[in-house]
Write a protein that binds this DNA or RNA. Structure first.
Lengths: 228, 228
DNA sequence: TCGAAAAACTGATATATATCATATTTTAAA
DNA sequence: TTTAAAATATGATATATATCAGTTTTTCGA
């Protein structure tokens, strides 16, 4: 069992605010889990009973609309925590998390986190700051979804993905998403996403490298994202 | 100058967690403001330097998209607090707040709230819980905006408005919004909103009462909201 | 390595929604 | 009260996007 006190991943999230003693307590009760690509970490309606700290890998966080269409709300990677919103509200999960790659995560039981929230104001404040940032991001997404065209949202998504996941040694965006996933991020039909990607490829703004996508003309993509 | 200790409005927000002493301190430094319908309370890019506690009236909280279209993110009324997200992130405001009616609000300076956040864990935890709820609401809105048709969103908005603002003595939804405001809530062109409202009126699902709207057939509206 | 299933792709068509134009009604200011 | 401006309404049309149908390519398990 790896020790939280020595885990570098906590530096990237609110757990960095915990004291050594608190971390030792967490180490004692947390469980490590290996999650296979495609596995469901949790789904809408689940009682979570804790939070997940992502040590390695990527997952998508999504929600079903009443129409039966799936909307990806966020992509989560190393260092992030998921499940904390439901924990704080003391509710069943409103979201579904599915692994996009093999993952290495730690599960920390609810009671331990609540103990820290009640006893360590620095931790609580950091969780609050993180949530404030999430809320700002969500507000931006609402505006984009409501006001921008699918083409704009696709361009923006590609730029955002490159910024977040960087490029691999071949210059391609370092995350593999299916066409359906991309469609579910921008909120459109899979066919529409495919068509618009093909169009961008034809215009040499992007290119496909095996399963990945590389941005060739960032400037042009930024223009499209802004509606030109 | 009214006293926070005696103010009933605080019972509806996180300020309820403050101690008597803390409230007395807030009373000493807060300022009351009368805001006229149509006035801007704050706008995107403003340094807020505090939060606003709404004692009376309603305001819309919105954000401009890069396209130059305005998206209303939330409607805020008596008991709610605005400006706390920017305060916690220590950022300029990402949103604009405009009064939809004459308002009576209290402005509480940033330093005082920060003091309480640092010293009163119950207060911080309540702010955190409120923000967790806001985040859930925002996530739902993302999904609706991305996956539902304008017609669905209009129906849902009308139902939501009735639930939130109740009906007046004539049975109309007790908030007055311009057609443009309604369009900016559902994220569509004003003409489209008008057309769809007319359609609902023609079908006797809603009716117009002067400036207000009344829901005549809630069941049917719920069906439309669900995509039928 | 084969074959079935899944994913990616393309075309044709329908439909929802935006846009532009213009008319009518309401509001508010002079 | 009159009048200009704003809000509401409606029609015509263009366009973006969804949907349905079918093909090709890729993936992966037996």
């Amino acid at each position: 069992m790896s020790k939280c006190e020595q885990c570098i991943v906590r530096k990237f999230n609110s757990l960095k605010e915990l004291t050594k003693d608190e971390l030792i307590r967490i180490t004692a009760c947390k469980t490590s889990r290996i999650i296979k690509k495609g596995d469901v970490i949790f789904k809408e309606g689940d009682h979570l009973n804790g939070i997940f700290c992502i040590k390695e890998g990527i997952c998508k966080v999504s929600k079903m609309s009443e129409n039966g269409r799936n909307q990806i709300i966020n992509l989560i990677h190393r260092g992030n925590i998921i499940g904390e919103r439901s924990l704080i509200s003391d509710e069943i999960s409103n979201l579904t998390a599915v692994a996009l790659s093999d993952m290495d995560v730690c599960f920390i039981p609810k009671e331990e986190i609540i103990k820290d929230l009640e006893k360590n104001p620095g931790f609580t404040l950091d969780v609050l700051k993180t949530m404030a940032t999430s809320l700002k991001t969500a507000d931006n997404l609402i505006v984009n979804m409501a006001q921008k065209s699918v083409k704009q949202r696709l361009a923006e998504t590609l730029l955002h993905l490159e910024g977040k996941f960087k490029t691999n040694n071949k210059g391609a965006i370092d995350i593999h998403l299916s066409r359906e996933d991309i469609a579910n991020i921008i909120g459109t039909a899979t066919e529409s996403a495919i068509r618009l990607l093909s169009e961008l490829k034809k215009k040499k703004i992007i290119t496909f490298m095996g399963k990945d996508i590389a941005i060739l003309d960032k400037q042009e993509l930024e223009k499209i994202a802004q509606g030109f």
